[in-house]
Nucleic acid binder design. Structure first.
Lengths: 244, 244
DNA sequence: TGACGCATTTCTGTATACAGAATAGGTGTG
DNA sequence: CACACCTATTCTGTATACAGAAATGCGTCA
């Protein structure tokens, strides 16, 4: 960080378009006309089309048979399956880390992140949500790297980017969940047990823990989908979920 | 099938470029100049760049920091991890199919495919390799759909497309493996046990079987990587594997 | 002889122009 | 009044032109 990263037009289009979709600017199924969209994003069609390709692979857009793209929609099962799948691949990362013996430096870093999370949420009346989201993402990123395999790391990251499957997908709405603190304590307990299992070379335990940990996200999702509809506008992507 | 699929320039570029890379036309690490490559592929730079984007997401190309792409290379661990990961996600598809109860029509179709495989390999002296590759791919495709989840299906397919992770990646060289028939019989046994576990709602067993089944590919890879180097030219992608 | 700097050349990223296909709207006919 | 056909417009897919950046080679100076 600190880099004056000159933003490319493609990145600008990806970020802009993803933001528009996730915040519900289009209703699911809408066809996206390229010319108008490019103008709205302040770029030309060439980088926009690259951005659309990317969002297709992320699952946010669907290619139509007669050309063009439309905004994808997800039902409850899609979200739960994506979360389950994230648990499975994170579980594989954890298991392989345990079996192979994790890098001590990365383990120490993971422990440190957990300490920082403790600090960020120490005062139940004044939780630092931004820090929590950032640190939680950091922990999961380290976890994906613990197996020492670029392939695993890469695919964990990819699946985490599936719509609403990310470890931080629902934190923005979690603050409204009644027993949020309880959920937080539970999550931290699982984080610590996970590291303990990995350092103890308990592969099966680490895998099971990672899976169950991901399923916490299901609980949050189950709450949010029935909560105040106004939440759909503040939890990114929730507007794309069909009730079917 | 039967469609007179008008091939788009993008598909042409994807297939052409993927073929060139997999058959070892470039040594790993080569930077790919767009203009020359486009001309060689008989298309313009626009569809070629889309194709390169796609191959980057497939893992065959790597984006360079200062622009452009180069051909990726894989070491033995990369391949084995990709195979392991395929086993894991196929295992998840199998487990979820068992837990949820599979679609009877799909199950019947899977059984039929296994019967066809038996026929294709019935005569040890005259095995129909093309049919075997096609039917094996078909079986794994049905397996990915058995859980009834588009998300799972899609991601299984994606991970199967990682370089050298596909269920059919090594069959082209398998014919040279000494005890190929034994391996084939073993694979078919696992296929049948897998379906039995799924229809019996034995989720854990189905998951374990799918994982172990994928690891058969490791054996084939372990053989081929030390076999006659000439094989590198006939097994797609093998030329990209570094010995390190 | 080696290293540094400048100029040239190549390459990528982006914008735009163009052609063919698909779709919508309007009109004519049964 | 409904349905079909034709036309016009819009949109996508592809090619190409252009600008800025990176790399390479050469010349000069220490």
């Amino acid at each position: 960080m600190g880099d004056t990263d000159r933003i490319s037009q493609v990145e600008k289009a990806i970020i802009g378009l993803r933001g528009m979709i996730m915040s519900g600017d289009f209703i699911a199924g809408t066809r996206l006309p390229e010319t108008a969209l490019a103008e709205r994003l302040g770029t030309s069609r060439t980088p926009l089309r690259q951005a659309m390709d990317r969002l297709v692979t992320e699952g946010l857009l669907e290619r139509m048979t007669n050309g063009g793209c439309r905004v994808a929609s997800f039902n409850l099962d899609d979200i739960n399956d994506a979360i389950e799948l994230r648990g499975v691949v994170e579980g594989t990362a954890a298991r392989l880390a345990a079996e192979r013996g994790p890098d001590p430096d990365l383990m120490a870093e993971a422990e440190a992140v957990l300490g920082d999370i403790d600090i960020a949420v120490s005062d139940p009346d004044q939780i630092d949500f931004d820090a929590y989201v950032r640190l939680n993402a950091k922990f999961h990123e380290i976890l994906s790297a613990l197996a020492g395999s670029p392939v695993i790391r890469r695919e964990v990251e990819r699946i985490s980017n599936l719509p609403l499957a990310s470890p931080s997908a629902f934190v923005r709405g979690q603050e409204l969940i009644p027993d949020f603190m309880a959920s937080l304590i539970r999550a931290q307990g699982q984080h610590r047990a996970l590291l303990e299992a990995i350092s103890g070379r308990e592969g099966a335990r680490a895998e099971a823990l990672a899976r169950e940990h991901a399923r916490l996200a299901r609980l949050n999702f189950a709450f949010l989908k029935d909560a105040d509809p106004r939440l759909a506008t503040c939890v990114p992507g929730l507007a794309l979920v069909t009730s079917s």
